[in-house]
Design a protein around this nucleic acid. Structure first.
Lengths: 154, 154
DNA sequence: GTCCCTGCAAATTTTTTGCAGCCTT
DNA sequence: AAGGCTGCAAAAAATTTGCAGGGAC
């Protein structure tokens, strides 16, 4: 799976909603678009802020409710990245996170082997995956080599 | 690595503290012991509650501060298990979590292959691991087979 | 004796919820 | 027209912080 275009994502969302008699609202589309276009791993707060600079006001309550919904659909995934609040991102090709405790940088890792292995583990446990999140917390190469400058990767 | 005994854990904690000129207090030892003895994946709230039935009162502030510290030392790991607050557990042998979205059950998975793979990924990225957390969210075998009864695994 | 740690209390941050009216279907 | 969805406002839940006194070393 590659990063879906906004069109693909919207199609998938509409389908999910229609199937359950739910409504496709401008707020839901705006939030989906916002996360799709965001580089990095925005929090609910960041999504709300970003939207507030656009033409459509969306309340925090709706942002939270919609992010939950989008995770439900499988369009987004959610992780904490070592912080005390959630971060969201497009559920694109399978990737994992190395999070540096010193500088906060988030390194994305793509590993087909990891993907295969996770698939196998789920199969062995008769478990149907919706989403997954691997976070490895530690110290990145820069920080291990003495470069301590803050360089937040998100 | 296997689950450390309380003695091993205490030794490791004392060493960590001594090295940094920090104090080894009864509160810190009590919290460490509490997590060690807890079956499952307690939250800060649960630790505080549990302690309050013992002889030593420990404030929430101290519970939060100490859990942070214990994660720092590498004695505990922290994950959200799909919820909006943190859960803690002993950093024992490498294992991952399958979390059922329907019944909340947490299935622990041990995979030497996964461990090797994660080690390799870290090495390739010149990344020094402190802790890690793999959460796979989906539907467990029971729930997929129509058994919807609530059966929280913690 | 030094200075780290604790409890307290309050503040902050993050997430959830009830309700009345609006909007999608 | 029906009923899901939104904003509002408030509540709840989770986490952090400043400070004065107590305790570890």
């Amino acid at each position: 799976m590659v990063v879906p275009t906004y069109e693909e994502a919207e199609r998938k969302l509409r389908k999910y909603l229609a199937l359950r008699g739910l409504r496709c609202t401008v707020e839901r589309l705006a939030i989906l678009k916002e996360v799709l276009e965001h580089k990095g791993h925005p929090s609910a707060e960041e999504i709300a802020l970003q939207l507030s600079s656009g033409p459509l006001y969306v309340s925090r309550a709706t942002v939270y409710r919609t992010l939950d919904l989008l995770v439900e659909t499988g369009l987004l995934t959610c992780s904490t990245l070592g912080e005390s609040h959630r971060h969201y991102e497009v559920h694109a090709d399978h990737h994992d996170h190395l999070i540096c405790r010193s500088c906060g940088r988030v390194i994305e890792i793509r590993s087909p082997e990891m993907e295969k292995l996770q698939d196998r583990i789920c199969k062995e446990n008769d478990f149907e995956t919706v989403s997954h999140s691997l976070e490895i917390i530690g110290y990145c190469s820069r920080c291990r080599n003495g470069d301590q400058r803050e360089n937040k990767g998100d």
